[in-house]
Amino acid sequence: MLLAGTIMIDPTSPYLLLSLALLLEALLGYPDGLYRLIRHPVVWIGAVISRLDRWLNRPHWPTVWRRAGGVLTVLILLGGALGIGGALQIWLLRLPGGALIVGLLASSLLAQRSLYRFVAAVPAALRREGLAGGRAAVAHIVGRDPNSLDEAGVSRAAIESLAENFSDGVTAPAFWLAVGGLPGILAYKAINTADSMIGHRTPKHEAFGWAAARLDDLVNLPASRLTALLLVAAAAVTRGARAGAAARAVWRDAGKHRSPNAGWPEAAMAGALGLRLAGPRRYAGVVVDDHWMGDGRAEAGAADIEAGLRLYRRALAGLWLLAGMWAWAMG
């Protein structure tokens, strides 16, 4: 325990590790040079998932075997993440300054900085290069066909991605870091990466990806609700945003989204900005007829994306405040 005045701070506390990770990721992000040198932990996890997909998801196998292969894949990923993360944390926290090293490792699994950068590139491209530039920029952060989007569609897609990835890429890994330290956040990223790679309702992955998709829904449940609360609170202190409308949109619309989690931050963002988000969308030529989040205008533009980014910054400040309070109270 470290003594700071009359406050005892445990350097092994996951709440302290969360505060360190949030600070380090905001300051440093994941340096491009490091990515070129060793890639990224999510890339390593993805390589393991691809290998298991080839081994355990044979197209000629019966559905029950493929589903069992998907369950085994999830168990292997969880076992590896928890084992490696736990061993690293125990070893590193025995070293001088070990908490800082663990915080640095955990920071690589957060996406505050990169999410802001990628979303902010969209309004910049719309203003500089028009619709073609906006489509090219938004293609980096959404799965839908950008060429089918007009300027309002590009703008809504960027705002929806900001809201959903705030939950999946920032709040959820932060939550599981607070709950379980480095093994907790690593296990979360393994599950989330598996869902993004194999959790699709396609002939190849509907059976094999079933376990990954269901588990991803479960582990994202607390963070999606917390993210909605953070956005509603941020709207209350952001000029031009509407906290009451955000809360009403969450209450009315979040549960109608086809995803059990994405609707919460999207509805909060839509209500706060006076927009309608989600709704019918096209993925790989297939129209997904989803419920609208919010009851505002569907016409959005670069200024709305920038308003969403202002809201995101203040919601991040709320997450930082919670992390600091937890570290102080639980230290």
Rank of each mutant, 00 (worst) to 15 (best):
M1V: 15
L3H: 09
G5I: 05
I7Y: 11
D10T: 08
T12K: 12
S13D: 13
L17G: 00
L17E: 13
L20S: 08
A21K: 08
L22T: 10
L24W: 14
E25P: 05
L28E: 07
G29P: 14
G29V: 13
Y30R: 01
Y30M: 00
D32P: 05
D32H: 11
G33N: 06
R36I: 00
I45V: 13
L52Y: 03
P59V: 09
P59C: 13
H60P: 03
R66N: 14
R67D: 02
G70V: 08
G70E: 08
L72A: 15
T73L: 12
L75T: 02
L75V: 14
I76L: 15
I76V: 15
L77M: 00
G79K: 12
G83T: 12
I84E: 08
I84T: 15
A87Q: 03
A87F: 10
L88S: 04
L88G: 06
I90Q: 11
L92K: 01
R94K: 13
A99C: 15
A99T: 04
V102T: 11
S107I: 01
R113I: 12
S114Q: 06
Y116C: 08
A121H: 15
A125P: 03
G130W: 03
A132M: 07
A132C: 04
G133H: 02
A137Y: 10
V138N: 13
H140S: 13
R144T: 12
R144A: 13
E151T: 07
A152Y: 07
R156L: 09
R156G: 09
A157K: 05
A158S: 00
A158W: 10
E160V: 06
A163V: 11
A163H: 00
V170H: 01
F175P: 11
A178P: 08
G181W: 13
G184L: 13
Y188D: 09
A190M: 07
M197C: 06
M197G: 10
I198P: 07
F208T: 08
G209A: 04
W210F: 12
A212F: 05
A213E: 03
L215K: 03
D217E: 13
V219R: 11
V219E: 11
V219P: 10
N220F: 05
P222Q: 09
S224W: 04
R225F: 02
L226G: 01
T227V: 00
V232T: 02
V232G: 01
A234C: 09
V237Y: 05
A241C: 02
R248N: 11
A249G: 01
R252S: 09
K256I: 07
H257C: 07
R258S: 15
P260W: 09
P260C: 05
N261A: 02
G263M: 06
A267M: 07
A267Y: 06
A268C: 10
M269L: 11
M269I: 00
A270E: 00
A270G: 02
G271D: 06
A272Q: 00
L275P: 05
L275T: 08
R276I: 09
G279C: 07
G279A: 10
A284D: 07
V287Y: 02
G294V: 10
G294R: 03
G294A: 05
G294P: 07
D295W: 02
G296Y: 13
R297C: 04
E299C: 01
G301H: 07
A302P: 14
E306L: 12
A307N: 10
L309I: 08
L309S: 01
R313S: 10
R314W: 14
A315T: 03
G318R: 04
G318Q: 04
L319S: 10
W320H: 09
G324T: 11
M330E: 03
